[in-house]
Amino acid sequence: MANPALEARPDFMANAYRPVREALMAAHNEDVDQAVDRLTSYWQIEHDQRVEAWNVEQEVQAREAERIQLEQNQREEEDRQAQEAEAERERKETEKKKPKISDFNEDQLPPSIVAPRPSQYAIQKLTVFEYVELWYFSLEGCAEALRNSRSQADDTYGITTAHDVLALRPVAAVRASRNARADHELSFGEFLQAKNVFLKNLTQAAWPDKHVNALAKFFWNIENHPICNNENGNLIALHYASRIRRRWHDDLKSNPGTVFNISLINETLMNTISFEVNSSIQAKAIRKVSPFALTLELR
């Protein structure tokens, strides 16, 4: 529809309008000029109405176009924000997966002592609060771990169980050493050295302070027990420590809430083990003298 404001006023004196002029002249008893003025007036009124309607329609269309444009702009802005949010989420996810490296103090010297590092198997056992032999924390155990360590990740995995949940872990973290020895098979010196590394790794494995303190006191009580001053005393203390620490871990796993305090020495058990150890040593000595003698073996 064309803009009516651009229309030119008709020439009502033209022959095309003669019938209309004459009809108006007859109806209103007017001359030709009056009839032309009347036609002009009629046309102007109708023309102004059409111009006004046109303007209103243009305003409505303009508002509608503005509304559509605003909605489109809003959708585009929402799409842009959504894309930015998704890009930021992906960036954060990628950032999480990137290996992290800690900062360091440029003025701080390296430590004077570097503690031996046990195997991944031993560390994994501590992480899930399971029993592990002290041998893994001895100089021998840490030396074996160092020999078997690799500078790159091992892509061989094995199945392990933690809290009744199966999980895949590197073989190095689930495979026990064939050279591992029970606690009572260590020398007393190896036992004392290993327990220091063991306690340090307990803290790094986020064991509760209550448990770490109990174990620290347990080892101290073993090391300083009067039995160690007796003949075969160190061996007796080792057997006691080996047996009671294993039982403590078993109870922690199967009897929560009723577990004994490992730091307290049970003198009755210590005396029982003393009798067993001394009897076993005596039996071995007798066997060397008489192969037919009744032998008593410590179980």
Rank of each mutant, 00 (worst) to 15 (best):
A2Y: 02
A5N: 02
L6V: 01
A8R: 07
F12E: 00
A16F: 04
A23N: 07
A27W: 08
N29A: 13
V32A: 11
Q34F: 00
Q34V: 02
T40R: 10
W43I: 15
I45N: 08
E46H: 01
H47A: 01
E57N: 06
Q58S: 04
Q58G: 07
Q61A: 14
A62R: 13
A65D: 05
E66A: 09
E71P: 04
Q72N: 11
N73F: 08
Q74G: 09
Q74M: 12
Q74V: 09
R75I: 11
E77L: 09
Q83S: 08
E84Q: 14
E90W: 03
R91P: 02
K92C: 01
P99W: 04
K100R: 12
S102W: 10
S102N: 15
P111A: 08
V114S: 00
R117S: 04
Y121G: 13
A122I: 00
A122T: 03
I123P: 02
K125Y: 07
L126D: 07
V128W: 10
F129V: 02
E130W: 07
E130Q: 14
E130P: 01
Y131R: 08
S138T: 11
S138Y: 02
L139D: 12
N148W: 04
S149A: 07
A153D: 06
D154V: 13
T156R: 10
T156D: 07
G158V: 06
T160R: 07
A167N: 05
L168F: 14
R169F: 08
V174P: 00
V174T: 11
R178S: 13
A180S: 05
R181H: 13
D183R: 06
E185Y: 06
S187I: 06
F188D: 02
K195D: 11
N196A: 14
V197S: 02
N201P: 06
L202S: 05
Q204W: 09
P208Y: 03
P208D: 09
H211D: 01
A214P: 03
A216T: 13
F218H: 11
E223S: 05
N229L: 12
N232C: 07
L235V: 01
I236K: 05
I244P: 01
R247A: 08
W248S: 01
K253Q: 13
P256K: 02
N261L: 04
L264N: 15
N266D: 15
T268L: 02
T272H: 10
I273M: 10
I273L: 13
S274W: 00
S274L: 03
F275T: 14
E276C: 02
N278W: 04
R287E: 05
A293H: 11
L294E: 15
L296A: 10
